[in-house]
Amino acid sequence: MTGPLGWSVLGQTLVRRERWPGGHRKCVPLVYPGQDVLPDQPVLRIEQQEKVAEAALVEQRLSSPVAGKIDIKAVRDGLNATGEGETIPAGLRGHVVDITRRGGVVIESQAAVIKGAIGAGNQVAGILTMWQPGNSSPGTQAIPPGAILVVPGPLSLTMLRLAISSGIAGLVASSIELRDLEGFLQTDLVQLLDSENIEQTQAHLPPMTLLITEGLGSIAMPARITNLLSQHQGSVVLLSGVTSLRQHIQPDLVISLSTKEVQQNWHPVKSEMTLVPGAQVRVCGGEHEGAVGTIDHLFTYQQIFSSGVRARAARIKLEDEKLLVLPLSLIERIG
């Protein structure tokens, strides 16, 4: 159960997510409908035979040149460890509303949601950790095992290799060049996004979930996103990298709001895609791609642009007070 297309940032909203580790696994629910859960509370257990079978697949992925230097034996030993099997934390603070037929746990939560332009990888939970800008790479910072690391700038293939070798569960960044993303995923991006079988496609990706907020290229993360993430640093969050053009699914990061936040200032926002004066928008193409502003005026008639094209247009006031007139096809509503 992933999020549909919509605003890139929702500061307060009510969400429902199925907690499921991905793949065709056999999981046992540890909670029941009507129960309240905490983000770090185990809600699923992967049966032991599933862990043993998964060990060979993970070892095969980690043995690829992309993974860099990884202690494969330690990973394999961890997956094959004796005991009752790996438990999966909720990743959300909320209320269990259903158990799905495959054993997934559906949780309703009052949360903040950040949606990405592109992502890859199954749903994971971890501690939200901001990368310190003074460090040269994610691999040089002391990061909690299984963390969800936030890099507020562009990613490179080298950074991805260092991140995965550090045991990071997921990575959120602003942008990445196409060659670096495809080099890390070892697959064609168009084929990945247009795949008919999402579960099968995700199973063959490297074991680290990615969310790219702005898309391909070299674009910085907007302040509204970095500020929101900084406010929740240290929280357990839920990240999904699943992206599908066929099923209109975007990757997202879900951050449950604390009880105090809900009690003091709960004003849920509903996603609305209509372009109207006063709406906050993002430029999604052209030389100003990535810029954020507010619709100052919607033109009644089509405008003629320097290329000779006639199109419906809007005047946008950017965050630096600059005014732009852009075709509606090049802007998307974000707030």
Rank of each mutant, 00 (worst) to 15 (best):
I176C: 11
I46R: 02
G6T: 04
A55G: 01
D77H: 06
I70D: 08
G183N: 08
V151S: 09
V15F: 05
Q35D: 14
L178Q: 15
L318D: 02
S235F: 05
G215S: 01
V52E: 14
L275N: 06
A311L: 01
L192R: 02
T187Y: 11
L10N: 00
E177F: 05
E199P: 07
A125N: 10
Q202W: 06
S8G: 03
A120G: 10
W20I: 07
T294A: 00
V96Q: 00
Q191W: 11
G6N: 03
P39R: 07
G23P: 02
G11V: 09
P277D: 03
V28D: 15
I99A: 07
L210N: 07
M273K: 12
T158I: 09
T2Y: 11
Q264H: 11
G104P: 07
D194N: 14
E332A: 03
G22V: 04
V106M: 12
G241F: 04
R101C: 10
G121P: 04
A147Q: 02
I225P: 07
L38E: 15
L14A: 10
L330F: 11
P251Y: 02
S156A: 01
P207R: 02
A125Y: 06
M159D: 15
L323M: 13
V106E: 05
E199D: 15
N227I: 13
G104C: 05
T259Q: 14
K73C: 08
D188C: 05
G139K: 14
G94E: 00
L245C: 12
Q132Y: 13
R282N: 01
T209Y: 03
L79T: 08
I331R: 02
S258V: 10
T201Q: 09
Q35R: 15
S218M: 12
C284Y: 09
L193D: 04
L10W: 03
S307F: 00
G146V: 02
T201I: 13
S307C: 02
G91T: 10
Q12C: 06
R19Y: 06
S8K: 08
N122V: 14
N80M: 15
S63V: 07
A67S: 12
V292R: 03
P33H: 03
A291F: 12
E86K: 05
G217R: 02
D188V: 09
L192Y: 12
V75R: 09
T158V: 10
G290K: 08
G83A: 05
I70L: 05
D77W: 11
G126H: 05
E177T: 11
L155Q: 04
G22M: 00
L238A: 03
V105R: 04
K270D: 13
A173C: 11
M208L: 13
S244T: 02
I198G: 00
P42G: 03
G103C: 05
Q303S: 00
E289K: 15
R16L: 03
Q202M: 13
G278Y: 04
A56C: 02
G6D: 04
T129G: 08
A311C: 10
Q141A: 03
D320L: 02
V15C: 06
A142D: 14
R25W: 11
S230R: 15
G153A: 06
P33N: 07
D36T: 15
T226L: 00
R161Q: 15
P277H: 08
